[in-house]
Nucleic acid binder design. Structure first.
Lengths: 187, 187
DNA sequence: TTCTTAGCGTGATCTACATCACGCCAAACT
DNA sequence: AGTTTGGCGTGATGTAGATCACGCTAAGAA
């Protein structure tokens, strides 16, 4: 369990046992059931989360009550409403479980303490942030350049595992089309 | 000129004269004319750029020859084809000047040296990366939730200065609509 | 068991936006 | 001065995808 977290860090940086123990002391382990919310749109956001197992969705519900999915967070992903988390403002997004899920979470204060004490953790998160940024850019381009059918293909290629775990209504919402349109694309 | 760069860093971290001199030694100052390319789609990407003055566009041209704009980089912005820069792969985007532009640029190697020597620079870039990520998320949501007219409004509000500096064809391409559609929205 | 609800497909219709095709004007070459 | 080019508006028409409205099936809940 802790091993998952450690292995995850050690993909990019190396840690002694003492260092990892120190890092770990800043995190809390938690379990959630399917349908539970980690973040509710409108509420405060106290943590950022590392997914040990399970599946979450980060989504925004617009005033016309439509849900738009920013990302599906699977094993080994970091997820939160980053803006709300970093600026201590209220969430504009919700984060909830599509499956039973276990996470390590960390508060902003602990995060800052950890960074101050261990520059290499900042190095780690800079790399993570870069990958996240690049993935988002790719998705933005995909929305700008591709039709719904093409975006679906790309998603299939990039995250084949998702298809087995997420229902089509949610996939459609991630792709930016309606359930009906996605259904017609696949059938 | 160097002052611009220093002030920019000092919005988030503080630097002694010696430290700034050290930082500066990793950068090169360059000037480009309107229509010049800093990055060409398909070529290698050797630098990331800090815009001192002027205006650039980062864009991707798809196989059907349509240009899609990822961002307009104004004064004080950092810009590159990040993925190509960080992984030393070929650019999938172009970066070119909409106005005469001056920049500080840095290679990946110098960047890494700088980070290794000065953790606080890594701290600085982590914050920048976070803001970039958050801005991209906002834009993604805007594409998912809003009509062309609404996106135009939002852009007006967020970057009023852009309207004076960028022609409508490019604005349309940033918004993800055709020139004609944008024209009909505004008239 | 029966009732309710979630997931999915599908037809009919509607609409935001794209595409194609003009014309006008002002800037910029030659 | 004349000619080309870029920027912009606008009409007519086409189309991807939304919306509304069904019905079917399977899984939970009472």
């Amino acid at each position: 369990m802790q091993e998952k977290l450690r292995e995850h860090f050690e993909k990019l940086i190396s840690l002694t046992d003492e260092e990892f123990a120190f890092v770990l002391s800043h995190f809390t382990f938690r379990k959630y059931k399917k349908h539970q919310f980690l973040i509710q749109q409108g509420d405060a956001v106290n943590h950022t989360y590392f997914v040990v197992s399970g599946l979450l969705k980060l989504s925004h519900t617009s005033t016309d009550d439509k849900e738009h999915i920013l990302l599906f967070a699977m094993e080994d992903w970091w997820v939160s409403d980053d803006h709300a988390y970093l600026t201590k403002t209220n969430a504009t997004m919700s984060l909830d479980c599509l499956e039973d899920t276990s996470v390590f979470c960390i508060t902003l204060e602990d995060n800052q303490k950890l960074f101050a004490a261990m520059p290499k953790m900042e190095h780690f998160f800079l790399k993570k942030s870069h990958s996240g940024y690049i993935a988002l850019q790719r998705r933005l381009l995909s929305l700008l350049t591709s039709s719904a059918a093409e975006r679906y293909e790309q998603l299939l290629k990039q995250y084949p595992a998702l298809m087995q775990r997420v229902n089509k209504t949610l996939l459609a919402s991630y792709l930016g089309v309606t359930r009906e349109t996605l259904s017609r694309l696949t059938s």
